[in-house]
Design a protein around this nucleic acid. Structure first.
Length: 443
RNA sequence: GUCCCGUUCGUCUAGCCAGGCCCAGGACACAGGGUUUUCAUCCCUGCAACAGGGGUUCAAAUCCCCUACGGGACGCCA
């Protein structure tokens, strides 16, 4: 059985976007599913528009998404070079072959391909049989000497022994050109699979430069987990056909195949991506979460004196409720700074329904009985007993204390908060809150 | 304009090839309720779709035709 060989062939002319990522991903998935080879080929025939920066971005984004390539830039391989700008000799030979066969001719300084006039059958793995007549001759070598896209694409697929061409549906109409070229070169035709396009979330047309969320690099900057973005993109145009959505990549690889790919375009929905990102965040081992969180927090805080054990216990406590790494400071920054600010709105609401300072004084005198706060059950018992003795809701104590300790009315479980903060920090924060409140009343 | 592809809840989709199990299932989002007397977790409930019209059939989301709508391609761009 011949080995499956697929390729992703971007041109380094601009930004690396979600659509490119999805094409790369589907090629990569198919290669991994079949134990085949995933080739990265750089289509840099347009001399004026190529930039080195764009190339670096492509390599970086693919790596970030975990889409490793078996052959291509930095990886090497037996079918190189993998830059079209370095394959001039190969193209020249194939132009000669076409000319010798009477299928290419010169006109206006360019080389043109002579179409057959016969409708071509495209046996698409996703769409079935598509028939299209290529109506007119087209340029394969420009008058400036550089070979054109359709020609180099075919010659490379041929000389790199590509078995399956998986690409966007925008190329479906071009495929009749490509099949004509393969036939004229007396070469076998690869199997085609045209995947649906990603449409913009609002309004008509496919996703484009002007759309929010278009660039892969933006998701990296906004600290989305690459595994989450990858999982979400898998679900855009492909379905495992059951109710699984959040899946390990190995499971996706095992289940990915052409019959699971849809025919119509899909709209990108960042809300669902955020949901999946949060799912991944919750499943992340605490050690990895800590590594991801640290640099983000360090932009706002000095963590040099924070003990590792404390740092981990904070993240462990808060992990189940985190929605993104990006807003991690807002959610749990107060654990690491004593001069955190108190939210105005939450404070107003609290004072309107009771006397937080009085509750905190009562709570502290009860908690003073405990040697420490490590036993959440014991702390909970103490708080509930206190509430019962004073004929109050437990919530009055909890809400007041949470606000005094964090400045917020949202956060992890209260008893977990006390356990992680510990007796000493709790004492310090209660004191600070009481002093600030007295000053506020006096002034 | 010509050619090609498509059309199930607001969004992603299951079901369609092999018609009955579908007055259409799941997920996100949204709304309501509950738990943890916090909340951004979690649980429950609700809302909401077969583009339209003709056939074929005892029976159509599923097969056929037409229309409408959406997308794409028609470059010496890739």
């Amino acid at each position: 059985m011949t080995q499956i060989r697929v390729r992703f062939a971007p041109s380094p002319t601009g930004m690396f976007h979600i659509g490119s990522a999805r094409t790369a991903l589907f090629n990569w998935l198919y290669a991994r599913h079949c134990n085949g080879v995933f080739i990265l080929r750089i289509e840099d025939t347009d001399r004026d528009r190529n930039t080195d920066e764009a190339l670096k971005l492509i390599l970086h984004c693919l790596t970030w998404l975990g889409l490793n390539w078996d052959e291509g830039p930095e990886a090497g391989g037996a079918y190189g070079p993998y830059f079209q700008s370095q394959r001039g000799q190969i193209y020249a030979e194939h132009v000669e072959q076409l000319k010798a066969a009477g299928r290419a001719y010169e006109k206006d300084g360019a080389v043109w391909f002579r179409v057959s006039g016969q409708p071509q059958e495209i046996h698409d793995q996703i769409r079935g049989k598509v028939v299209r007549l290529e109506p007119k001759d087209f340029v394969i070598v420009r008058s400036n000497g550089s070979p054109g896209f359709h020609f180099v694409n075919v010659v490379d697929d041929l000389t790199m022994s590509v078995t399956h061409v998986i690409r966007g549906e925008d190329h479906l109409s071009n495929t009749s050109k490509h099949i004509e070229l393969f036939k004229a070169l007396d070469a076998p035709i690869p199997r085609y699979a045209h995947i649906p396009l990603i449409l913009k979330h609002h309004g008509p047309g496919k996703m484009s430069k002007r759309d929010e969320g278009f660039l892969v690099a933006d998701y990296e900057r906004r600290l989305f987990l690459p595994e989450a973005l990858r999982n979400y993109i898998c679900l855009l145009g492909w379905s495992p056909k059951d109710e699984q959505e959040v899946m390990d990549i190995d499971e996706i690889i095992e289940r990915f195949d052409f019959p699971g790919i849809n025919k119509d375009g899909a709209r990108f929905d960042e809300r669902k991506l955020s949901f999946i990102n949060a799912e991944y965040l919750r499943k992340l081992p605490v050690k990895l979460l800590s590594e991801a969180a640290r640099p983000v927090l360090e932009q706002k805080l000095d963590l040099s004196h924070v003990e590792t054990a404390y740092f981990h216990s904070v993240l462990d406590l808060c992990q189940e409720k985190l929605r993104s790494i990006d807003d991690i400071y807002a959610y749990l920054g107060y654990f690491f700074e004593e001069d955190f600010s108190y939210g105005e709105q939450a404070g107003r609401k609290l004072r309107s329904t009771g006397d937080p300072c009085a509750r905190i004084r009562e709570l502290w005198s009860s908690l003073a009985e405990l040697p420490d706060f490590s036993d959440e059950t014991a702390v909970e018992g103490t708080v509930k007993r206190l509430a019962a003795e004073n004929d109050r809701y437990t919530g009055e104590y909890i809400h007041s204390a949470r606000y005094a300790l964090s400045g917020m009315n949202a956060g992890p479980s209260f008893y977990g908060l006390l356990r992680v903060l510990g007796r000493d920090r709790t004492c310090v924060r209660f004191d600070r809150f009481l002093k600030l409140s007295e000053r506020k009343e006096a002034g």
